[in-house]
Design a protein around this nucleic acid. Sequence first.
DNA 1: CGGGCGTTTGAAGGATGTCAATGATAGTGG
DNA 2: CCACTATCATTGACATCCTTCAAACGCCCG
Lengths: 280, 280
Amino acid sequence: MNAFVQMKPLTTCERCSVHQRALCGAADPQLQAEFERLSHIRTFRAGETVVGETEEAGFVGNVVSGVLRAQKTMADGRQQIVGLLMPSDMFGRVFARTSQVGIEAATDATLCCIDRHAYEALLARHPELEHRMLLAVLDELDAARDWMLLLGCQSVPERIASFLLILCRRMRNRGCRHGSADGRFILGVPISRRDMAAYLGTTVETISRIVHEMARRRILRIIHPQTFEVLDHARLVDMAGREELDLSETLAGPPADRLYRLPGASRAAQPETGWRKLAG
Amino acid sequence: MNAFVQMKPLTTCERCSVHQRALCGAADPQLQAEFERLSHIRTFRAGETVVGETEEAGFVGNVVSGVLRAQKTMADGRQQIVGLLMPSDMFGRVFARTSQVGIEAATDATLCCIDRHAYEALLARHPELEHRMLLAVLDELDAARDWMLLLGCQSVPERIASFLLILCRRMRNRGCRHGSADGRFILGVPISRRDMAAYLGTTVETISRIVHEMARRRILRIIHPQTFEVLDHARLVDMAGREELDLSETLAGPPADRLYRLPGASRAAQPETGWRKLAG
DNA sequence: CGGGCGTTTGAAGGATGTCAATGATAGTGG
DNA sequence: CCACTATCATTGACATCCTTCAAACGCCCG
């Protein structure tokens, strides 16, 4: 547990920042050695394509640092981001020629890659690994369906509030209890407006308008286009319109921290009337 | 293959209409016997709840006949259908207390049910079954992401066309080459307008308007609110706005028939201008 | 026959997309 | 170090798709 009592030198994988959270970290020593032998680190600059939408990917892997976007594109160019992949998340599609999902680096990123067929063979030889893989995919499916609810039922203001709440929760889960030391909650959005729009099924202009309206209402403070201070968490929850949001793991994270609950902040005295309409 | 040369009497499972397509059908004899012992048939009337959204389901299973809807509900009652489950599709969530997805019978339905923990134990004892389960869940994930593209990027007319095309493809895959004997293509929609609206992220009124507009344009003929004749398949494809639709398995069907391709019907001489706008 | 449900149709309004122009920012090369 | 440029974000005006509300219609079934 403690690095100071560790006698044997750590392997490369054991030094990996996402090793504890990723699938490979749960493997037994022999399997970990296989991972160590088969995997390799690759880096991508923001905007670079990791796996094209139509191509058959030769490899799968884990995000070590940075953010990837999993996206689908229509014939006329319209795009939908179907998942944001953060450190320790898996990317790539096993057991299929192609899944029509492209993977691109949303920020500069470091990936731990492994040949797809080698990984499939590993899964076949190690049922316990395949079991954990199944659990991870089931969680991704839950997340995808949660996002279908967001896209199909929620207004754009609700979607934006939901998205920001999910980011809040993720930050807290990752240990950073507050974004800044003095109790204020600073929220860094890891992706551009364009990616936000493609993720939330809207446009950059609409996002800009609504975020600024939220700032006018003192729900947020805009420090930088991608950095906000959350001023009124309770009204953000109201605005999202769904109670379970602080509970669910919508960004396809690991199931371990699924039961984390935000502290029950008291509701604002003056509840904003229906955020389904921007007028409020 | 042929029932007439079958000497041993068929087991209950072997007589099951979805046995060939479902997970259980691919199991070895010993595992099939376990399925036979553990599973039981339950019937539900249209509208009945199979698994509540918040409750912890005690069982999982397969659809034998009828259609189920997998849906999520927001606090204020808005609903999104996140999947339509047809015969041979699995329902229920293994390895989780709850997935916040409710299952209801969209039509009268017959289900083959199995205790969830018993099934989980079965998966643990039979890695090859768990492997097939993983493949099925991966296909469901692909389908969910395809639907995210539909909800996030497509206009309502495009969504409706896509939905109808998927039903067409499903019908053809299931062997019914034509809905009627004389070469006309009769399409039965297995769900109500309300369910269509909840599935496509829109309202019954909008669906009605667009379907009737399609009838006016001689793309469809409305035989009955839930029965259409497809008059112009090519323009239906145009209207959907995505080429890969006839290829992808969007309704979470089995992967076996994934490569089926519709015959390349010739395009209409007079292409409708942009179906993104209803005016056309 | 009547009630209820599902569907259709109409009118009106609003939320959000589109187009266009400006402002802000960061990266680049001289 | 600074202009230059490309990209991103913002803001405004406008158009329109779609929802909402309302009422009528058809149909099934008791």
